[in-house]
Amino acid sequence: MLRYVLRRLLTAIPTLFLIVTLSFFLLRVAPGGPFSQERGLSPEVRANLERVYQLDAPLWRQYLSYLGNLLHGDFGPSYNLPDFTVADLFRVGLPVSVQLGASALVLALILGSILGIVAALRQNRGVDYAVVALATAGSTIPTFVIAPLYQLVFALTLAWVPVAGWGGGALVNKIGPALTLALPQIAIVARLMRGAMIEALRANHIRTARALGLGSWSVVVKHALRGALLPIISYAGPAAAALLTGSVVVETVFAIPGVGRYFVDAALNRDYTLVMGTVVVIAVFVIMFNLIVDLLYALVDPRVRYD
């Protein structure tokens, strides 16, 4: 087991290296630069700025120095937010995004699973159709429609929650963003759980358990659920990585100081270091959660072993 984890971590290194290299050159090949969009910047000033950030050096040297800094844990300064280093921005924003993403993930897993199980147990009846319709709605209505609707109803009309803002992570501020972030995920988890549960309930060992006279609740929770968890786990890995690294729409609409907002702006303004930093952080999350998923597999399904 430990050897398996170590091997996986070792193979992550070339993957990360490839990702860094690919995105570095992709960014640099793109037309424009971090200082090309500010109007009224005289060529001398621009040349000076580029010298300060060593953007005038040959590309391969910039690449090597970026790699070198990265190995020391230095993500470099942000070009468009000049008072901050990329690491500073993450130190402030990442906890917020992670907190929000984790709440959304927990919500999605619990609510989605319950909905899916209920639908599977009442297959082709009213409840089932309602869940399927809800799941379809959840995955087809864009977040940027739901978020303003939520604000309109609960903040502006009913005045139960603040319209936007983080409020230091107060619960009332978190409900809306967490729910809007979770809704599409709830929909997908419910669908996956419904499908997997229907399959699991048809399995022979479930029939045996029923024939032995086990109560239907214990059959579902102890025996069927375990088999049905596999697709949920494999979905939850990438979903967790995506949720925890922040969402552009939700963080923008609710004015939340997370890291999700940076990414799009940074890419559009060619804030090279900030984009690269975000790419690296997201890739690390993806690799980490893929590993966790594979380990969880072994935990849930005794047929899976890593020796």
């Binding site: 995105s23 799009v264 790419v279």
Partner: peptide, 11 residues
Amino acid sequence: YSLPFIFLVIM
């Protein structure tokens, strides 16, 4: 796959 999707799209 590991590259953030939105990054590719923006590029």
